[in-house]
Amino acid sequence: MSDQEAKPSTEDLGDKKEGEYIKLKVIGQDSSEIHFKVKMTTHLKKLKESYCQRQGVPMNSLRFLFEGQRIADNHTPKELGMEEEDVIEVYQEQTGGHSTV
Rank of each mutant, 00 (worst) to 15 (best):
Q53R: 13
G28W: 08
G56R: 07
F36W: 00
G14N: 13
I88A: 03
K7C: 07
G81S: 15
V87E: 11
R54F: 10
K37G: 04
K39N: 08
Q69C: 11
Y51T: 05
R54Q: 14
K48R: 01
I27W: 14
E33S: 07
F66N: 05
N74I: 08
K39Q: 09
E18W: 12
E20Q: 12
A6T: 14
Q92R: 13
R54I: 07
G56K: 01
P77L: 01
E93G: 08
G28F: 00
K7I: 14
T76G: 05
G68P: 06
T10N: 13
S31M: 00
G56A: 07
N60C: 05
T10I: 13
T95G: 09
L13C: 07
K37I: 02
A6I: 11
E93L: 07
E84M: 00
N60D: 12
K37M: 05
L44D: 04
T41P: 07
C52R: 05
L24V: 13
G96T: 03
K39P: 08
K78D: 14
D3W: 06
Q29F: 01
L13Y: 11
K45M: 08
T41N: 04
F36M: 00
G81R: 07
M40G: 09
K37R: 14
Y21H: 15
S31V: 01
M40H: 15
E18G: 14
V90C: 12
E5H: 07
E79Q: 07
G19E: 13
E20S: 14
L62Y: 10
M82A: 04
S50P: 05
S50G: 06
D30P: 06
T95E: 03
H35D: 09
E5F: 10
E84G: 13
G56T: 04
Q69V: 05
Q94G: 01
G81Y: 00
S50F: 15
L47R: 03
Q92V: 14
S50C: 15
V38M: 15
I88G: 04
S61C: 08
T10C: 10
L24T: 08
Q69E: 15
T95P: 05
H75K: 06
P8L: 13
Q53W: 15
E93N: 10
S32G: 12
K45E: 11
L44Q: 04
F66R: 02
K48F: 01
I71W: 02
N74D: 13
F66D: 03
L44F: 14
T10R: 11
E85T: 07
E33T: 00
M59Q: 02
P8N: 06
G97D: 03
L62A: 00
G68Q: 12
G14W: 10
N60T: 05
S2A: 13
K7G: 07
Q94P: 08
I34C: 04
Y51P: 03
M59G: 06
A6P: 12
G56N: 09
S31A: 15
F66G: 03
I34R: 06
Q92K: 12
I22E: 00
Y51E: 03
K7Q: 10
Q29H: 08
N60L: 04
P77Q: 03
C52T: 02
I88Y: 03
D30W: 03
E84L: 05
P77T: 03
A72T: 14
D73F: 05
M40K: 13
G56F: 07
I71C: 00
E79D: 12
R54C: 09
N60E: 15
Q55Y: 14
G68R: 04
V87N: 09
S32K: 15
E85D: 13
S32W: 06
G96M: 06
D73W: 02
Q94C: 10
K17P: 10
E85Q: 10
H75P: 07
F66S: 02
E67R: 03
R70N: 12
V87L: 14
S9P: 15
S9Y: 10
L47D: 05
E5I: 00
L62G: 01
K7P: 10
K37A: 13
E49K: 08
I71H: 00
D3H: 11
E20W: 06
K25D: 00
K46T: 07
